[in-house]
Simulated assay, not measured.
Amino acid sequence: MIEAILLTIVTASTPLLLAAIGELVVERSGVLNLGVEGMMVMGAVGGFLGMMWTGNPFIGAIVGILFGMALSALFGFLVLSLATNQYATGLALTILGLGLSGLLGEAYVGRSAIRMPALDIPVLTDLPIIGRLVFGQDLIFYVSIALVIGVAWFLFSTKQGLTLRAIGDNHASAHALGIKVIRYRYLAVLFGGGCAGLAGAYLSLVYTPQWAENMTAGRGWIALALVVFASWRPARVLAGAYLFGAVSIGQLHAQALGIAIPSQLLTALPYLATIVVLVIISQNRRLTMINTPASLGKSFVPDR
Rank of each mutant, 00 (worst) to 15 (best):
T274C: 11
E3D: 14
H253A: 09
F77N: 02
A217C: 04
E37W: 01
L278D: 09
T125S: 15
P122G: 06
V109T: 14
G197K: 00
T288P: 09
A88K: 06
L103D: 12
T125W: 02
F191L: 11
Y108H: 15
W211D: 02
I261R: 11
Q86Y: 06
P128E: 04
G105R: 01
Y271K: 09
L226I: 14
Y142R: 03
G47P: 00
A241F: 04
I249Q: 13
V41N: 02
D126G: 13
R28F: 06
D169M: 12
G197S: 08
P302T: 08
L177N: 15
L133P: 01
V237F: 07
S144G: 08
E27S: 11
N284M: 09
L100N: 07
A254K: 05
F300R: 13
L155H: 09
A273L: 12
N291W: 10
P270T: 07
I280G: 12
F244S: 03
R236I: 07
V247D: 09
L198E: 02
P293Q: 08
A118M: 06
T216M: 09
F135D: 04
L177Y: 14
G131C: 05
I5P: 02
I95Y: 12
L96Y: 08
N56T: 07
I249L: 11
I167P: 02
V41S: 03
T216E: 12
F58I: 09
A294W: 08
R286D: 14
L205E: 00
S101M: 08
V301D: 14
F229K: 08
P293R: 06
T14N: 00
T158I: 05
A172W: 12
M39C: 08
G60M: 01
N85W: 05
S204H: 02
I249N: 05
G38L: 03
A70H: 02
V123R: 11
T11F: 09
A223S: 11
A118D: 12
L93D: 02
G193I: 01
R165M: 13
S81C: 06
L34H: 03
I140Q: 00
T274L: 13
I5W: 06
G64E: 03
A19D: 04
S173M: 15
E106P: 03
Y271T: 10
F244A: 07
S263V: 15
G245I: 03
N170T: 14
L252H: 07
A172M: 15
L34N: 03
V247M: 10
L190G: 05
V151M: 07
T163Y: 07
V109P: 06
M51I: 01
A118E: 10
V228A: 12
L93W: 01
T89R: 07
I2K: 08
V277C: 10
G193T: 03
I130W: 09
R115F: 02
P128W: 02
G218H: 09
L269A: 15
S295R: 05
A260N: 14
L226K: 03
L91G: 08
P15D: 10
A166F: 07
A223W: 00
L80D: 01
M42G: 00
W232Q: 10
A107Q: 15
L238D: 03
L243I: 14
T14R: 00
R285V: 13
